[in-house]
Structure formats: structure tokens, C-alpha cells
Design a protein around this nucleic acid. Structure first.
Length: 262
DNA sequence: ATGGCACGCATGGCGTGA
């Protein structure tokens, strides 16, 4: 007897208010069990909650005016919802939501971008990855199902960015951020898209500032879905939906999704 | 080498993104 897989998706929405039609259309067509959003760019009092609950989704969200903001949409009521890093330093509640859905902890993150490699913001980004690994160690077990997804703001390998040789000092490809990312996933997370498609060049972000970047496929794979070992082996499908990036009024990112037999 | 486009803002230019 086959069970319905758990379909999880992630999308840096670049303003939920601007992108509400995009999100509603994608929910209708793809029907994910869970959709994790980043960069909602709206304070909680102005979040378009009713429009999303009207189409059958529960919504956990935390935002601020103008910047950051994360949300988790789910078909079922989450068994738990927690915001931010709980280690005593800046919690960044607008960058991390942990929900438990159908028994699976799902951590949705909008990792700090870092600005420039000589900036304090970059130091903060590197530290954020270390704090995240400690968060996983406190709250999760690598031998139990868990999912980490979101805009991770790092292209892990040269395959994950166009012209990698030109981006060696970019805050999303610099050796220090790639090392910080690898140390974090080494706690026990597997990048399921890369596991299923080991050699595929497949980006999730294309810069607005080069309008030709989509057509020329000059992008970055900086959005990811990762799973602990017992769940990663149950991942049968994972893919990127390019259509929303090619449509009118797009985000600069697009949707990534994965299905798990749970 | 630089900036490019989009978004939000007690908005008519600026900070931020990646």
C-alpha cells in the first residue's frame, strides 16, 4: 500500500504582498503539503493571512517592516511552531521558523546574505552557520527525520554558480562561506536535489540587474532542501520550477520542491 | 572597473538584496 508522499517546497518570494498571485497560483497547481517562504518583507499585522487560509493552508509567519521575514504554509496544523535561534545571541526570528508537520521537524531559514567578504555582515553570516549547526545539535537528531530548507545564500560547489571563477570573493561562493556551509551540513543533512541529480546544472536564482540572466541562464543554486539520513533515503523526486521566474512580475528566485515517503 | 533591477519606505532618494 502506497502512502501519499510529503511534498515540501521553498521559495524566496521577495515580498509576499507583491508575489501573492504567484504563490496562490503555485499552490493551486502544485498542491504542496508545505511551502516555506523567505523575504516576505512585511510586518505581521500586514501579512496577507486570510488570502492563504482561504485556499486551505495554515500559516506560521514572522516578519518585520521592509526586510527579511519567513513563513511556513502547511495543509495540516503544525504540531509545533518556534521562531529564531535560541542561543542567547540575536535570535533573528525573522530568519528562522521551525515547525513540526506530520511528525517531521522542518527548519525554514533565510540565511544572512553578508554584503561583502570584508564586511561585519559577512562575519555574522559565517557565525550564523555555526549557530545553526549548534541549533540542530540541540533540537534534532541526525538519526531521526528532519528537513532544513530555504534561501541559504551559498552556492556549495562550482556547478552551482555560472562562471564560478569570477565569484571567488563573492559572499555566496567565497571559500569561507562554502566551508561554513559544509561544516553545518556535516552535522547530518543531505542536499536532496544534488543527491538525486548529481551532475545537473540547475539554478534557483537569477539576478534582476542583468535582465538577460534568465535567458542566458546565468544564475545561482542558493536555495536548497536538505534532509537527515532516514528521510533523505526516502526522497524520490526533487526539482526546480522555472516557470514562475520566466512569468511576468517575478521574484528573482524560483520554487524548489522535493517529495518524501514518510 | 562599474552598475545594472526590484522592493519598501511616516517614500520623491536611499538602503538592501546576491
Amino acid at each position: 500500500m502506497r502512502r501519499r508522499p510529503l511534498k515540501v517546497a521553498t521559495f524566496n518570494v521577495n515580498s509576499i504582498r507583491k508575489r501573492l498571485p504567484t504563490v496562490l497560483r503555485w499552490l493551486d497547481r502544485q498542491g504542496p503539503d508545505v511551502l516555506c517562504l523567505q523575504e516576505t518583507k512585511v510586518q505581521d499585522t500586514d501579512f496577507p493571512l486570510l488570502e492563504l487560509t482561504a485556499v486551505g493552508y495554515q500559516v506560521a509567519f514572522r516578519g518585520m517592516k521592509a526586510y527579511n521575514g519567513v513563513a511556513v504554509l502547511s495543509r495540516t496544523v503544525p504540531e509545533s511552531v518556534d521562531y529564531g535561534l535560541d542561543d542567547g545571541a540575536a535570535p533573528d526570528e525573522e530568519r528562522l521558523i521551525c515547525t513540526t508537520i506530520r511528525g517531521v521537524p522542518i527548519i525554514n531559514t533565510y540565511v544572512p546574505q553578508g554584503f561583502k567578504i570584508d564586511s561585519p555582515k559577512y562575519t555574522y553570516k559565517l557565525e550564523w552557520f555555526r549557530r545553526l549547526r549548534a541549533y540542530f545539535a540541540r533540537h534534532l537528531s541526525p538519526t531521526k527525520p528532519a528537513i532544513w530548507c530555504g534561501d541559504l545564500n551559498v552556492a556549495p560547489e562550482p556547478l552551482d554558480v555560472h562562471a564560478p571563477e569570477k565569484h571567488l570573493t563573492h559572499v555566496c561562493f567565497h571559500e569561507a562561506v562554502r566551508r561554513a556551509y559544509k561544516e553545518t551540513i556535516s552535522w547530518g543533512f543531505t542536499d536532496v536535489f544534488r543527491k538525486l541529480h548529481p551532475n545537473r546544472q540547475q539554478y534557483t536564482f537569477w539576478d534582476y540587474r542583468q535582465p538577460s540572466s534568465v535567458k542566458a541562464n546565468k544564475g545561482w543554486r542558493i536555495d536548497q532542501i536538505l534532509a537527515t539520513a532516514p528521510l533523505a533515503v526516502q526522497c524520490r523526486r526533487a526539482d526546480v520550477d522555472l516557470a514562475p521566474r520566466k512569468a511576468a512580475n517575478p521574484s528573482d528566485h524560483t520554487f524548489l520542491w522535493a517529495e518524501f515517503l514518510v
